[in-house]
Computed example of a mutant assay.
Amino acid sequence: MSTIPTKLQALISERIISGEFPPGTRLDERALAEEYKVSRTPIREALRQLAARGLTDIVPMRGVVVREIGVKELSEILHTDCELEALCARLAAESMTAMEKTELEYIHQRSKEFVQNGDIDGYLEANRELHRLILEGAHNSVLTKMVGDIRERLSPYRQYHPAEADRLVSSHASHDAIVRAIIDGEGEKAYLAMRAHNAHLGNAALRAIRQAREHGGASGNGAASAVMPRRRQAQGDPKPPAAKRGRPRSTPQA
């Protein structure tokens, strides 16, 4: 179960990514604690997590400020991740053991059950496990670490895209092409399938982020002007401010 700082980090990161907290915005511990109705301790830890993810910087005499990460830079990082993970899929097709392939097939079939039941949380957990198995199945520790580091840096951005009614269905279908190619030992097919899968997700995320930043920028709202719902929230359940009209919904990446 997620801790309070982790939940707060996720809520604040979405506001950074959407442009509600634009680059250069100072994230004040006291103001955020009052807004989310929690103490300053979990806010402080959440801000440390944001800095570790590269979304903020700690600036002398100013404190924690939102880092400038432009759409162009983000696009380049997404492209790098797309190519490297596709390479992992190719290597996995060529080097996975029979037992590893069996485990990959099992997780893929489990994810199908989650799709049929509309279990988003279950599917996302299976999705993370499936990608982990492919990375490890490449049997290249240097490449695996590179992809892991990039995915950690991208994780707040990759989860931000418009909700789609058939999101799980389309994601599982593209996973099917990847898994089939790996199990059959078809390295080039696995590479192309993973590349197409990640390219689609990356492009969807970029479109949503551009749209969100247009709305966020036009509103002129920064950290100081964000508004929380009036009813007080329990400390164990921090809530985000009311959503702005016109902002795209965000759902975790599948």
Rank of each mutant, 00 (worst) to 15 (best):
K101N: 14
Q235E: 15
E100R: 11
H215P: 09
H161Q: 05
S2K: 13
S141E: 15
I134V: 05
G217E: 15
D237N: 07
G216T: 04
M96K: 00
V64T: 06
S39G: 15
S174L: 09
S219W: 04
S13V: 03
E105C: 10
R67S: 04
N127Y: 00
A204H: 10
E188K: 10
G70N: 08
P238H: 04
R245P: 13
H131T: 05
T251N: 09
P229E: 14
R62G: 00
I12M: 03
Y160R: 10
E136T: 14
A98C: 03
I209H: 07
K101C: 05
H108F: 07
L104V: 02
I12Q: 02
D28I: 03
Q116S: 13
E100L: 10
A181G: 03
R15S: 14
R210L: 06
S155E: 03
A98M: 03
G220W: 05
I12K: 02
Y106S: 15
D149T: 09
T80W: 04
R153G: 12
H161P: 04
T41Y: 02
S18L: 06
E113F: 07
S95L: 04
S170R: 08
E68V: 02
G202V: 09
R110G: 11
G187W: 01
Q253M: 15
M146R: 12
N117F: 01
L84M: 10
E14R: 07
A224D: 14
I12C: 00
R67F: 00
S2H: 06
A165S: 13
R40M: 13
P22F: 01
E34R: 13
A205D: 09
T25C: 01
I107S: 12
G185L: 00
L133K: 12
H79Y: 07
P60N: 05
G220H: 08
H175D: 08
K101H: 05
A33D: 12
L124C: 07
E83T: 10
R128A: 12
E94Q: 12
L74I: 06
A89E: 03
E129Y: 03
E45L: 09
T102E: 12
P42H: 02
E94W: 01
I16L: 06
R158D: 10
P238E: 13
G185A: 05
R44L: 10
R15F: 03
P240C: 08
A52W: 11
A138T: 00
L47F: 04
E113V: 05
N203C: 07
L201V: 08
Y191N: 14
A205K: 04
K189L: 14
G216N: 04
E129G: 03
L124I: 00
P229G: 06
A86N: 11
R26N: 04
A89N: 02
E14Q: 13
Y157F: 08
P5S: 05
D149H: 11
G236Q: 08
E105P: 01
E20Q: 13
A173D: 09
P248W: 04
H215I: 14
L47P: 11
M1C: 06
Q109R: 13
S13Q: 03
A212E: 14
Y123D: 01
A92H: 01
G216K: 03
I107T: 05
Q116C: 11
A163W: 06
